[in-house]
Amino acid sequence: MIQIVRLVAQRIALGLFTLLIVTLLIFLAVELLPGDFVDAILRQGRTQESVEVLRRQIGLDQPAYVRYFSWLTNAAQGDLGYSFSNERPVSDLIGNRLYNTFFLAGYAAAMAVPVALTFGILAALYRNSVFDRVVNITALSAISSPEFLAAYILIFVFSIQLGWLPSLAHIAIDTSLWESLKLLFLPAVTLTLVTVAHMMRMTRAAIINLMTSPYIEMALLKGVGPKRLILRHALPNALSPIVNVVAMNLAYLVVGVVVVEVVFVYPGLGQLLVDSVSKRDMPVVQAGCLVFAVTYIGLNLVADILSIITNPRLLNPS
């Protein structure tokens, strides 16, 4: 048990350290830019004095490391500064969009995870069958396609030709859940297509790797039937790799959402981020990157931890 706690603590520490480095990178990114926030909002008609006053007011006269720590502590409390382009607090801009992005990612995950696991496990069990080949070729094509291809094909067929579903995901705060699910169906399916392929291939590989292990052969030679072989002999050992695959792909999904949001003009964080990059609106980019990085690192950390605590060797140390 102590071994597990130590391993988990190690991973968490490593994750936090990585996060710290990432925040440093994000902070330094702004430092490297010529001009600062005050320059940006006080373009014209201000005297040198008023600029200096404002600068002192928001602490820009402090050395960089002081500002880094205050930025970090503020960010941790939800204060992410002000946008260059419309001077609104970044947290206001992000708040609702963050919810939208997570909603879409969650929607896609709810479809992708069960499908991917089922197909991955079935493909592994019926390895080299026609079913396996079809699934593999499909997955290969899906992985090879850019997200926007799937998106535009879906739009072309289902909203333009058939007119069943909307091609734009315009949702507002007061859109009902049912309506949201319908509006977001195409974007969610697009995301599902791409992640399912990855997740399925990884699940299949993990299961095949497991099924070639000597203890599975031993179970076969003990006359264990297929159902018991899977449930009792393979599954307890497969848990750790599968959980890992799922968490890794969820991380991928959250980030992959960016392109899909742009295609469907969905008011999510990804689209805001892309817009802000073209406008070089640093505080928003900073905040967006921070949120995505935290999610990504967090999910990968969860993957690591889950795979540690589902490992039978570590659970029962000698």
Partner: peptide, 20 residues
């Protein structure tokens, strides 16, 4: 550490600084 950061996000960040 480089791999712990989502590549698209890091690319966006750097392109913002350095210009597209």
């Amino acid at each position: 550490i480089l791999m712990a950061i989502p590549p698209l996000i890091l690319a966006l960040l750097i392109l913002t600084i350095a210009g597209t």
